[in-house]
Structures are given as structure tokens and as C-alpha cells.
Simulated assay, not measured.
Amino acid sequence: MTIEVHDYDPAWPALAAVAIDDVRAAMPGRIGVIEHVGSTAVPGLAAKPVIDLMAATEDLGDFAAHEAPVLALGYQRLETGMRERLFYRRDGYHLHVVGAQSWPTRNERLLRDHLLADPAAREEYAGLKRSLAGLDGDTYTRSKTELIQRLVDAARTARGLPLVDVWED
């Protein structure tokens, strides 16, 4: 399947808000914080038309053991090989569930905030994404790694955080 990159759609935040409310209602007491992350969370940024949500939970095992309400919303859990993360997908949405202890330093959140604050970085990233449109998903993702790593490193440095590899293999 080839990747499509769309111009920013101002409907994305509202779609994310509804999905956040749905997940929160489905998992009362099992989610601390849930946010819209990824390119669709950055006004003006070209993106794949997929809403990425990230939720923090105190216990990933407990969340997984009680995931039936999330599955009832149409999400499917997929094994990604990423440690300390549950990943769910439904048409047009990704839900990343991570441990609450890692929440403040999650690269996805740091990258989003960096792109919101830095128009030049946002434009550079948008240009790269547009140039990679039409590639298969794995090639598209891997081809963005160098720039994402540089942007995440800048965000982590600005916050006094240690640098980490953006790949969670």
C-alpha cells in the first residue's frame, strides 16, 4: 500500500477530540492522559490522514487484560515489537498506549510540540513528507528517520533530556 500525504485538514483536531472522548469513556480509570499526537496534531502540517492518539496508563498489562471496550470501538491490537507500548489501529486512527512513567519524555509528544513551536522545522518536515508520498509504508517511515531524529534531538536538548534513538526496536 502506498502512502498518501494530504494538506492539513482543520477537521483533524475535532476528529481526534471525539476519538479521545470515546477511548476515555471506554476505559474509565485505566487511562491517565490521552493526547492527539503525530502530524495531524500540527496545524498547517501535511500528513497521512491518520489520527494518532497517545494514552498513558499506570499498568500496560492491566490495560491489555481489559481492552475489550477499546476493541468494541473498532480498534485492533497489533504487535509492533516496540517495548512498553500497546498499539491499536482502526480505519483512520492509531492508538498508542504507553506507561505513565514515560509520558513526559515520549518522543512523539516532544516532536509534536517542537513542530508546533518551530515553523521552519514544520516546513522542512512537510516538504520531506510530500517528497516521499507514493512510497510503501515501511520505506516512507524509514526515509523520515534522519530528519525525525534531528528534530527530536533538538527538542530533547532544549528540555535538557538525554538523546535517545527514535526507533524503539
Score class of each variant (00 low, 15 high):
31 I>V: 12
32 G>S: 14
166 V>F: 00
7 D>G: 11
77 R>Y: 03
97 V>I: 09
51 I>V: 13
132 L>Y: 00
160 G>P: 11
36 H>G: 03
140 Y>S: 11
117 A>H: 10
69 P>S: 14
111 L>F: 04
90 R>I: 02
41 A>G: 01
88 Y>T: 02
110 L>R: 00
95 L>W: 05
80 T>N: 10
1 M>I: 09
63 F>T: 10
168 E>F: 11
99 G>M: 07
45 L>S: 09
57 T>A: 08
64 A>D: 15
156 R>K: 14
22 D>A: 10
161 L>F: 10
140 Y>T: 11
38 G>C: 08
155 A>Q: 03
161 L>Q: 07
168 E>K: 11
164 V>D: 07
107 N>K: 03
83 R>I: 02
95 L>E: 01
121 A>R: 03
126 A>V: 03
137 G>M: 11
98 V>S: 03
133 A>R: 06
165 D>P: 12
56 A>F: 01
99 G>W: 04
55 A>K: 03
157 T>H: 10
56 A>Y: 03
71 L>K: 08
23 V>K: 00
134 G>E: 12
120 A>D: 15
81 G>M: 12
121 A>G: 07
113 D>M: 02
167 W>P: 07
34 I>C: 06
91 D>N: 14
166 V>M: 06
157 T>K: 15
125 Y>D: 06
79 E>D: 15
73 L>H: 14
